[in-house]
Nucleic acid binder design. Structure first.
Lengths: 251, 251
DNA sequence: TTATTCTATTTTGTGTACAATTTTCCAATG
DNA sequence: CATTGGAAAATTGTACACAAAATAGAATAA
């Protein structure tokens, strides 16, 4: 369980021609973002600037910018003079994130029901369909990704950009939580009845949709965060060191 | 009304010795953040890197980092190769921000009531007291600032860091909205009955507190965003078309 | 062997230089 | 006189260099 978290390697991150307008960083950001959120980079993994700069073929300047942004989004952790690592949400953070999602996603339901259109709901059903396909073929990663996409897309039908951005941030952090605490089979394993809420919305049942979302999010949280942190490995040495020092002094 | 928005000047931003631990940027960030949120820098003001670098006595490197962060928080707007300006929220953005605040602040009330302690409520009452003092002495800026502080502090009693951060972001953007659209007397002019919600919380009336917050935020929004955008420049052609038509008819 | 200190290496923080792009200004032109 | 064109200036984007800090490793002492 206590795998050695060495630096990254992936040479496969290279791709992505510089897109027409603007930011060459943007492509790098997207790559790193995806790598973190899709759990290609384990939480705790060091992200040295030099390594990334070389991997993406740019200077450290651009990498720093990307890392700063990811740090603002709480997907990486930057400590002074110690560089960046893939963030490891604590249990408290995980609970806060899910509580925040309940507030935002339930709160947005009224507007979502009010603004929902048949075309918009069809787009959502399409996401659910792809989600089922991914599950059927056992592609867990894609299923988790699409599950997140569904929640964000659902929030977007309320046509409130501010809320959609907030939720996108919370969902990406949720992915990190799942990476950190989710057991291999849990996470999305039986909670993908996303169809149900679409039916509730289509029938105009705002209160029902809100209730569904509340239960759904509690269920997801329960299936993921159950295990409390084990402050075992990192502190063991320190504890033993303390004991030894005291022993030496006291003997 | 259409003031020329030239660059900034303030030499007074210099201060703030580098604090003990970490980031020399942090002080610069705080200064700029305060300058924007407290409306010392009008929305739309250009923020050239060289000027800021000189003003704060650092190189552009540090300034860029700070500007990136403020851009992420939507307080400044960075366009490719065009530099940064103080953000100018659109009317749509303003409405979205207030709608988001209603969702978050109302949604957080249940937990706030559940976790409220006498000591915590006293701290909030202290903010309200200072708020009243500022109003009494006519210090509008301080009153607006403290009003925002109150909302953020209130959200903090729920002990959910994720929510508190989200709300802090929304509140700072609200300040920008007030700077952009608020008439000189509106904004905080008679809505500072923040005591009321504290009484509701103290009495354990979660639903009452939620309802109060809903009404309060609608009232604040109504008093600020009333005036629709004047699409002056971009629609110049359309305006000229109107003028030409009238001219042709009137000659 | 185990723990500690000192040194070498690695990694980050920050300033500077140069290239690329935008903006400004002025002259030429219709 | 307004408009277009283009050169000059200003401003941003990116790479690189050097200083400061942390980490790793080896030698030493217990």
């Amino acid at each position: 369980m206590s795998k050695k978290r060495s630096s990254i390697d992936l040479g496969s991150l290279q791709g992505e021609e510089d897109r027409s307008a603007g930011g060459r960083d943007e492509a790098i950001y997207r790559n790193l973002y995806a790598a973190i959120v899709e759990n290609h980079l384990e939480p705790g993994t060091k992200l040295p600037e030099d390594t990334l700069a070389e991997a993406f073929g740019v200077s450290r300047t651009s990498i720093r910018k990307v890392l700063q942004r990811l740090a603002y989004e709480r997907l990486v952790d930057i400590r002074l003079n110690r560089g960046a690592t893939v963030a490891q949400p604590t249990v408290k953070e995980a609970r806060d994130i899910f509580a925040a999602r309940r507030i935002v996603e339930c709160g947005v339901m009224a507007q979502a029901v009010a603004k929902a259109t048949p075309a918009g709901l069809d787009a959502l059903r399409d996401i659910v369909r792809r989600e089922h396909e991914a599950e059927a073929r056992g592609d867990r990663r894609e299923a988790i990704y699409l599950s997140g996409e569904f929640h964000v897309a659902l929030s977007r039908v309320s046509e409130n950009e501010a809320v959609a951005e907030i939720l996108a941030g919370l969902v990406s952090r949720s992915s990190l939580v799942i990476s950190t605490y989710g057991s291999s089979m849990a996470g999305s394993c039986r909670h993908s009845e996303h169809d149900e809420v679409l039916d509730l919305i289509a029938s105009g049942d705002a209160e029902g949709a809100r209730g569904w979302m509340e239960r759904h999010l509690r269920e997801v949280e329960r299936s993921v965060v159950l295990e409390e942190e084990e402050p075992s490995a990192p502190d063991l040495k320190k504890v033993l060191g303390e004991v030894a020092r005291r022993h030496r002094r006291d003997r």
